[in-house]
Amino acid sequence: MDVKILKLSDDYLEARLEGCSEALVNAIRRAILEEVPTLAVHEVFIFENSSPMFDEVLSNRLGLIPLRTPPGKYLPMDSPECLGSSEKCFTTLSIDVSAGDSPLTVYSKHLVCRDEDVYPVYGNIPITKLPPGGKLRLEALARLGRGKMHAKWQPASLATYSFTDSPDAFVFRLESTGSLPSIEVFRQALDILRDKFKTLLDSLTLPEVEEKRGGEEGVDFGEEGGR
């Protein structure tokens, strides 16, 4: 397979993939959308909210804000090592703002994380608005999740490919949300696919039963026999 990068920026990647089947290109696309993990707010503790927005709506908006994700620093929440409240499973962000005599718009830049490597990709996303004298005080836990669990964890808002004049060449387009640089999203998707195929390959050894069965008849299906 031959990859030629046509356009590359932090949040956009366009590449020409040559000498591969459409199935493989589609597997990469799906790995990007469903498997590449990113950080997003997953739990919110609201201490004070005097904005006209309900706590639920506010939490939903917080979840959708893309957070810069340091690769490898956190464990995905579906990994077996990620149990309970270990340091590697989540990080905490907080908002503590109060409005003075005039209304105040709360922006994503007001989200402060205890880990300085994690921060909102865009600082000027309006979250809510406070009336004069209003307060917003909350703590949020950001976890590393995958797009197949919730769309807020998708690293890309566009992952697609188009056909070319040649049947074994495709133009792949990827638009990152900013949580990870576009090239990193692509790289991680390939790593994940490789690991998945390795798991498959490792499980392809012949079962021991086959070899030591010898003269016995039939395959043992458990207590009920081979029904």
Binding site: R61, S108, Y122, G123, I127, K129, Q154, S157, L158, E175
Partner: peptide, 19 residues
Amino acid sequence: MFPVRCFTCGKVIGHLWEE
């Protein structure tokens, strides 16, 4: 308030609203 992301494709658009 303006949505943080596009309902359909999920592109982040919240930061563009004020401009």
